[in-house]
Every structure is written in structure tokens, then in C-alpha cells.
Design a protein around this nucleic acid. Structure first.
Lengths: 335, 335
DNA sequence: GGAAGTTGATCAATCGATCTAGCAATAATG
DNA sequence: CATTATTGCTAGATCGATTGATCAACTTCC
């Protein structure tokens, strides 16, 4: 008996037709108790393994989902991926995971590959610099998709993320109102990232609302990573007196910033707020105040939205922005 | 033209047979320049997408790999997954990712699902409590596999990881010899994890070699996470005077430990060494000395070994243990 | 007793690519 | 010129499951 056990083998062994065995397998149609049992027995004794690929070919439906991420190993996206995986496997889907390293070209290749694999849909954290045409393409390909955590300019696409304007406002308001800050900095995040603009807009709103000018904000874009935060911190320190409060584009950036601050003996007394509230934020010294975007829940919601769209194709585009909350700890100066 | 564009459509459009189109596609066999061009043109104008599922069915070869991980969102495994993804996609494979939450039952389900998807092989970080029979099953199923980062008792399976005995010895020797410690603690890691026993054995070797008794080691198993480290830290502090040096089962455990130390005002002066040297270790305060297991490289090596085994089935089992190095920073007391 | 309905199972086409065997036309060889 | 190679292409079976059409056997009902 060469090769794997097929449904035909099972049927032969049970003395029924391939079709009947298929009915037993999928628990549909009319099959008598006895034959059902004979078939299931045959399946276990032969060690039958369902060939999902063959079934998908016939039914024209896959149950894999492409997950395209910019930074597979970043702690925040780790949580997002975790949520996605949970949401997908709970519904019988499996994620095909690809990393783009934030490179639109690699992203393009990745999506082509995933199409060849006939994925049922795509959850994408778009690389910075992704053209709006990507969404047009996905639409003409009738490939269901959901953007996760990052949006694109001039598109109308299904999206799951946090409300970044609110997030920026929240962080700024806390520094301004609770801690009496009169100057702020926003550190990290590449300029092309839309959520970055939203967050700084939120910060500016808070400044204005507090009777301050937007010139009270030092805006320093940069890489979203620990080393990015370290570099930005060094530049910020070198550029003159520190602002009263610093908001970082991610917790990792905040970690890097702290390293820079400590190198210059400024670790204490500076008010810092991170972003995303990853698992490690609470353990940081000082415990990091952070805008909680809840990566894992976000991933789960993205999975849910995508699967709903797959079940009901052509559903009008919906945008799911959760309102973030501020996880207040001590790095902002709270006791 | 309902449904997706098939190779038949391409062939018709180019005025050739399906077989010829297939030859063009795979760039094999003899096809004239002209027909080749006509076919490729037809492919682009029709927007043809290769159906890898159909091809896999025919050729009996998949190019997906199942990646089974215990903690998808942990920073260390994030690096491992990153390496795996890189190694796999570089060779034209794609990872199907599943999380087990360290639960053997879920792991069992996950592997069954992956088999149904006809994955070409499995990279597994086995859940604690995984029975040795798993390897027997995989072998009888002729499912190529590689264990990653964690080994199993009483099995003989392909493995890629770091040498844990050396790792433990390295950390301990540094504390004993460079810093003159005379008592140590090993914090975190569930007792059933084999690598934990290896590491503590390495620590004990170092103690004996240094003329100390193994009773100089406080051995406190526990969860491998920040909160795990926090709890263990609290217990350790409550249990009496701190040992001279503390080795943690992971950097996350060390982070949690530091929180506990700081709550009790013991943040400075305690010598701590983490494990895995994740990205965040260098940013920690104090910068964390850590045993560098190099998660990303480890993932890449695992991918390579697995793909080699798939290409050459029946290759004798090989164990790839890299010798870790100590990334010396300040948390151990070094300047 | 004959028409109609139900139950349990089967036949054969189908999904989209691959691949062996083979065919027709042209080129090379003795 | 007959024979052999080579080139370029194709027919048709195949992978393993699904599914609409069908069918035999058995009930039920008037």
C-alpha cells in the first residue's frame, strides 16, 4: 500500500463507495448507523488522514488565511499575531504567516505567494509606503482583506485598530492636566505612518484645548524600535533642555529612550508615556504609563471581521477603531 | 468568465495545449521562444494565478511547513519564529503557524490539523508534558520534523537548540569567578522542561568546579514569564537573605524579578543574569547580562535542518546544539 | 395492487495542475 | 534516399475529495 491512505481505501475496506465514505466524513446526508460505524472504523484502522487540499480544490474554498506583518518579532505585533491566531483557529482556519520587514516590495511578493496558496483572505499590517493601489488590486482580485493596526492614505478599506487621535490626546492630556507639563515631545514612528499623524494631531488638540500653542510640541519621527528610541533619545537630549513630557510611538521606543536618559543621568524625573501597553510595560522601571491599544484583542477582532467578510462577501467596508485607555503607572510621574 | 483563470484558459488564449502552458509555467522542457512568450503574455493579460493547491495534489508535495509554538507572543519565541519564517520563505516554503499555550492536548489537535493540510514538515517547540510517543507517531506517519529549543525525554529526534548545560555553567561561572559569588539561585522554568534540568546541572557543575557544594544553589521552578518572575522574586525575597547571584530561566523572568526587587528596594546591588538575550535585554536598567541563545539564528537553523530532511528523507537524526555565549552587561555587577 | 414517497447508497463528472507516452515535423547522419 | 535524432507540442490519465443525478429497496397510502 504505497502512498497515503485515501478515501477510496477507506471505502474499499468498509465495503462501500467512495461517495458514501465522504458522506460519513462530513456527517451529512443519509447514512445508516451500521455503515457509518463500519466506515469510521475503517478510517481509524487504516489511519486515514483527511486531505484538505483535495477538498479545497473541489469545493473552491480554502481555510487558510494570509497574515502579513511588518515586524514579526516585535512585542506588540507578537500580541496582535497571537490574537489573530486564536481568532482564526477557533473558527477552523489556519494562518499562513509572512514577514515583510516593512518593505512594500516584499509585501507585494508575499501577497502574490499567498494568492497562489488560495488563501480565503488576508489580514495585513501594511508596510510603510504601501500604495493605495494595493487595495484596488485586492478588490479586483476579490480577495477579502482587513488592514490591521495601520491604515493607508486615500483608501476605503476594512480596518481594525485603535483610535490614534484619541490615544495621542489621552496621553497628552494626562501630561498637561495631571502633571502640569507645558512642553511635550513625540518620539518615533516613521513620518509615512498614518497613525503617527493621527496621534500627533491628538496631542496638538490637547495642547490647544489646554491653551498652549502647537509649537510646544517637539516632533521627532524615527524607527519604531528600541534602538530607534535610543537614537531619538540621544538626539533629543543633545538638542537642548528636555520637554516636560515625552510621548513615545511605542513602548519599545520608550525603552530605548530610557536607556538614553540613563546614560545621561536623566532617568528619574522625566515624564514618559509609551504606546501599546505591551506585556513588559508594567515591569519596566519605572513602571511605564502607556496608551493601551490591546494588541491581542485587536488581533482577535481583526480575525472576526475578516471571517465575517469571507462568509458574507461584499459586505460594506467597516472601520473598527476601539477607543484606547491610558494605563497609568509611574513613568509619567504618578505615584 | 466565471471563477478564477485556469491554466486551460491561458492555453486557449495562447492557442496551445494545457500541457504546454504548464511547461512554460515551470520553465522546464522544450518550448520555443515564440510560444513561451505567447503563453506568458496570455498569463498576464488574463491575470492568471498559479493554483498551488492543485499542483500539490498532483505532485504529492506541499510547500507549507507547520510551525507549532508554545507561546506565540513571547519575545524569545517571537525571534525564533522570525528566524523560521525567514529560513522557510527563502526556500519557497510558507509557515502555517499554530499556538499551543503549552498544552499537549492542543498541540495534538494542532498537529492533526496540520497533517490534514498536508504540510511537508513540522517545526515544533514541544509543550511541557509532551509524551515521547509524539515522536514515534510522527515517524510512523513519515512526517518530517524538528524539535526547536526544547527537547523531550527518552526520544531520539532531530533537534535545534542551544547547549543548556554550557549556558548554565557559563552564567554560574561568571558569577562565581568574576564576581566572587558564593550562593546562587536559579529562577523560573517549569520542572518538566528538560532544558531547565540541563541548565541547573551546568550551574551545579560550575559550583563544584569552584569548590562549592550544590547546596549553594536555591532552585525555584516557576512559569517562564514576567509575572512568573515577579512571583518567584517575591517568594525568594520572603524566604530569607538573597543569594549572591541569581540566574533566571529567561530574560522575561529576570524582568519580573527586578520588579519584585525594586518593590522591596533591592534593585541595586543584586547580581542578576537572564537567559536568551532578547532584544530588550540591552535596554534594561541595569543593562541585562544574559546567556545569548540567539533565537533568530536558531529559527533559521531549524528551518534549514527541516528542509534538508524533507529533501533527503531518512537522514539520520542530528542534534544541533550551539554553544551559547554570555552577553556581559551590567546587571551581573560588571561595570 | 399500483402510485408516491422515503431511505441508503452509488455513478460519474469535476476542481486545476502535472506528467508519461507519443506524435508530427524538421535536421542530421550514413 | 532511408534512417535516426531532435525539437516542439499534445492527449489523456492522474492526484483525492465533493456533489448532482440516479437508482434499488422498502414503506405508506388510497
Amino acid at each position: 500500500m504505497a502512498g497515503p491512505v485515501t478515501l477510496q481505501d477507506v471505502a474499499d475496506h468498509a465495503g462501500v463507495s467512495r461517495a458514501t465514505a465522504s458522506l460519513v466524513l462530513r456527517e451529512t446526508g443519509r447514512v445508516s448507523q451500521q455503515t457509518r460505524q463500519r466506515v469510521t472504523e475503517a478510517m481509524t484502522t487504516l489511519g486515514y488522514v483527511y486531505n484538505r487540499g483535495a477538498a479545497s480544490l473541489r469545493t473552491q474554498t480554502a481555510n487558510t488565511i494570509g497574515v502579513v506583518v511588518t515586524h514579526i518579532a516585535s512585542p506588540f505585533f507578537g500580541e496582535v499575531i497571537h490574537g489573530l491566531e486564536t481568532g482564526l483557529t477557533d473558527s477552523g482556519y489556519l494562518p499562513l504567516l509572512v514577514n515583510t520587514d516593512d518593505d512594500p516590495a516584499r509585501q507585494h511578493d508575499a501577497i502574490r505567494k499567498l494568492r497562489e496558496h488560495q488563501v480565503a483572505g488576508l489580514a495585513v499590517v501594511p508596510a510603510t509606503g504601501t500604495a493605495a493601489s494595493l487595495i484596488d488590486e485586492l478588490r479586483t482580485w476579490k480577495m477579502e482583506h482587513v488592514l490591521v493596526s495601520r491604515y493607508l492614505k486615500d483608501v476605503n478599506a476594512p480596518y481594525v485598530g485603535a483610535d490614534d487621535v484619541v490615544g495621542g490626546r489621552l496621553a497628552a492630556a494626562h501630561l498637561l492636566e495631571t502633571h502640569g507639563c507645558e512642553s511635550l515631545a513625540y518620539l518615533g514612528g516613521l513620518p509615512a505612518i498614518l497613525s503617527r499623524a493621527d496621534r500627533t494631531n491628538g496631542v496638538k488638540e490637547a495642547l490647544l484645548h489646554h491653551g498652549l500653542d502647537t509649537s510646544a510640541l517637539i516632533d521627532m519621527p524615527g524607527e519604531v524600535s528600541g534602538t530607534g528610541g535610543l537614537e531619538l533619545g540621544e538626539r533629543l537630549i543633545a538638542s537642548g533642555p528636555l520637554p516636560d513630557g515625552i510621548i513615545c510611538h511605542s513602548d519599545s521606543v520608550a525603552f530605548g529612550l530610557y536607556r538614553a536618559l540613563r546614560i545621561h543621568g536623566l532617568g528619574n524625573g522625566t515624564r514618559v508615556i509609551g504606546y501599546d501597553n505591551i506585556g513588559g510595560a508594567a515591569l519596566w522601571e519605572p513602571p511605564l504609563t502607556s496608551v493601551a491599544t490591546q494588541g491581542e484583542a485587536l488581533g482577535r477582532r481583526a480575525a472576526r471581521m475578516l471571517l465575517e467578510r469571507i462568509k458574507e462577501p461584499g459586505t460594506p467596508t467597516s472601520i473598527d477603531k476601539t477607543i484606547p485607555e491610558l494605563a497609568v503607572r509611574q513613568s509619567c510621574g504618578c505615584p
